[in-house]
Design a protein around this nucleic acid. Structure first.
Lengths: 196, 196
DNA sequence: CGGTTCCTTGAGGATGATCAACGAGGGTGG
DNA sequence: CCACCCTCGTTGATCATCCTCAAGGAACCG
């Protein structure tokens, strides 16, 4: 989902540049701003006591993130950091909610956005419960694959650690599963790069 | 979220009685109706090849369910069945979307509802990844507990199997965890009933 | 009181996590 | 061009844990 930049700036939004690995907001922090990425990418994740991380989602150019808590006066369920230097628009919660009220089409688009996210979270939950590391990894690969043709393999633009964080597995497990999948021709691995 | 019954009936909704364990819609089925429970309760879940189930959510009196796919022309990510004889309102997708357009306050409420669900799904995902059966179970117990006072224990109205389905664990594991939690006084078990 | 559903326990096994160590690649500065 | 560093990938051994399977007990309901 993205709101037109003209509208955002008219309502007093500011653009801020975040350095690589800078945190935008923390888990449990009250939600006070609407964020929309002009350029760059953002990762939302949770980490547990032992430092193990779980990635809730990646967001990039043009996308907004962290909006749900704004609608319900809640805290953020996850932490958000930028993966690379990023330019991000920031608008106060009040103004954001006013925009929503003012422009019904925008509200409608948010409804769609949230519906999409619920669907994808439902899918993720289902696949994670399903145990079986290979199953989890395949469903992650499917979720990021652009074309759906199994014959036309594309580069998987994630490190094994990142995939581990997405699937809730450990790096070593991810590596071993990929080795097996390579043997079974389910993926190609060329120079350590994964193609699916 | 619930829409006023007068409005629903005015727009041609009908109420239908479902028998216990009857299926309302299946996973992967196209979403064509809006459903709202007048009386009864509904469970949405996925099951994998080996018959292991994962419960995505329970819904009861007054609540609507299965709306997200309506907004985005999608199929249902899970199956919905009634847990007990239930009276449920059914309205066609077209009419539902018209109501949404017609009444901005209703649209706004749906935005809130979806935001709440995203938050709770994010939490669930986080807790499930966190491994540790006891941790998963406690977070499930917290999510259903009415009062938040740990001293004032209340009956947990779910069977061990149901809790297993919610947490993605096996019955035996759930039972063993509860036995331990009983010893540590984290829960009370009286006549096999669990109090938390 | 018979049947059904739910709960319980034990033994055994599979599997993913953990720990530790090393290899490969890419980029940077001398 | 080489040396160094840093991140990422890889491998093997060991361990803890949850699942599986099997069998039996308890509660509840008509």
């Amino acid at each position: 989902m993205q709101i037109d930049l003209d509208i955002l700036f008219t309502w007093g939004a500011i653009a801020k540049v975040y350095k690589k690995n800078e945190t935008i907001f923390f888990e449990e922090e009250m939600a006070n701003f609407y964020y929309q990425i002009i350029e760059g990418s953002v990762r939302m994740f949770n980490s547990n006591d032992e430092g193990k991380e779980f990635t809730q989602g990646y967001f990039s150019n043009g996308q907004s993130f962290g909006e749900p808590p704004l609608f319900i006066d809640e805290v953020y369920p996850s932490t958000a950091i930028v993966c690379q230097e990023s330019k991000i628009i920031k608008l106060s919660k009040d103004k954001f909610l006013k925009i929503i009220d003012e422009y019904p089409q925008i509200q409608r688009k948010f409804l769609k956005t949230l519906a999409i996210r619920i669907n994808s979270k439902a899918k993720t939950a289902k696949d994670i419960i399903n145990q079986k590391p290979e199953f989890r990894i395949i469903s992650f690969l499917n979720s990021i694959k652009k074309n759906s043709d199994p014959l036309q393999k594309e580069l998987v633009p994630f490190t094994r650690q990142e995939i581990a964080n997405f699937t809730g597995l450990r790096v070593e497990t991810v590596i071993r599963v990929f080795s097996k999948m390579n043997e079974c021709k389910k993926v190609d691995i060329i120079k350590h790069k994964i193609y699916y």
